[in-house]
Amino acid sequence: MGDIIKAACPCGLTSKQIYRGIGFGYFETGYFCEPAYCDTCGIVEGKDASKSFSKCPSCRSKVKFYNPQLNEQEEETTGEPAFSHYLAGKKQWHCPKCKQDTLKFENLGCWD
């Protein structure tokens, strides 16, 4: 089970819905999604955190995850992911569009 979240910043950046966490298909695919950003393109979106390298869909450069532990991994992960509540620990995050710590995540609901 996971959360549906959306990123928004006063500068005008708004993400699409991000299906954070795992769904029923995780045990077949190993896919789990976490919010990530590209400073070059100024976007926030959900990326597969089980991969060792996730690319921006626009410029194809490496994205950064908001969860700092995921930026440190150098290999693809296997097994059940350990979810943390890192998003609740901070009120404002880095916005890749205006480069300020003014981005907020809004919880829209849950998904399976």
Rank of each mutant, 00 (worst) to 15 (best):
F83E: 13
A8T: 13
P10D: 08
D101K: 13
C98V: 03
C41A: 11
V44M: 05
T78I: 04
Q17P: 00
A82K: 14
R20T: 04
I43V: 13
C56K: 02
A7C: 08
P96T: 02
C11V: 14
Q92W: 04
Q92G: 00
P10I: 11
E106H: 13
A88V: 02
E74A: 05
W93V: 00
C59W: 11
G21D: 01
F105V: 06
E74R: 11
T40G: 05
I22S: 06
K6V: 05
S54M: 12
K16W: 03
T14W: 01
E34C: 12
Q92K: 15
G46S: 08
K97C: 07
V63P: 04
C33G: 10
L13A: 04
Y19R: 14
K55A: 15
T77I: 08
T102M: 10
E80I: 05
S50N: 14
W93Y: 15
S15D: 07
G109W: 11
Y19K: 14
K55M: 05
Q69P: 00
K99T: 03
A8F: 08
A49V: 09
G12S: 13
N107F: 11
S84D: 15
K6N: 12
D112L: 10
A36L: 03
D101I: 05
A88S: 15
K104N: 06
T102D: 09
Y31C: 12
K91N: 10
E45C: 10
K51Y: 02
C95P: 03
L13G: 11
A49F: 04
H94G: 00
K99A: 12
I22W: 05
L103P: 02
C95L: 13
S50E: 08
S61A: 11
F105Y: 08
Q17M: 05
S50W: 00
C41V: 07
A7K: 05
M1Q: 12
C110F: 15
G23A: 08
S58N: 14
T29H: 12
K97G: 01
T14M: 12
Y19V: 06
Q100M: 07
G46F: 10
F27P: 00
F24A: 15
G42H: 06
D112T: 07
P35G: 06
A7L: 03
C38M: 10
D3K: 07
Y86D: 09
V44L: 10
G30N: 09
G25W: 11
H85A: 02
A7F: 14
A8V: 12
T102A: 13
N71R: 04
S61F: 01
E28T: 06
K91L: 14
F24W: 09
D3I: 04
C33A: 10
C95I: 09
C33I: 12
G21N: 03
I5D: 07
K99L: 12
F24M: 09
H94T: 09
E34Q: 14
P68N: 06
C110M: 10
C33H: 04
S52A: 15
G12R: 03
P10H: 12
C56H: 09
I18C: 06
V63K: 00
F53H: 15
A36G: 14
A82F: 12
N71C: 04
C56T: 10
W93Q: 00
I43Q: 05
Y31S: 03
L108D: 09
F27A: 12
I22D: 01
G12L: 04
S52K: 13
H85P: 00
N107T: 14
K51T: 03
G109H: 12
C9A: 08
C41H: 06
E34P: 09
R20C: 15
K16G: 13
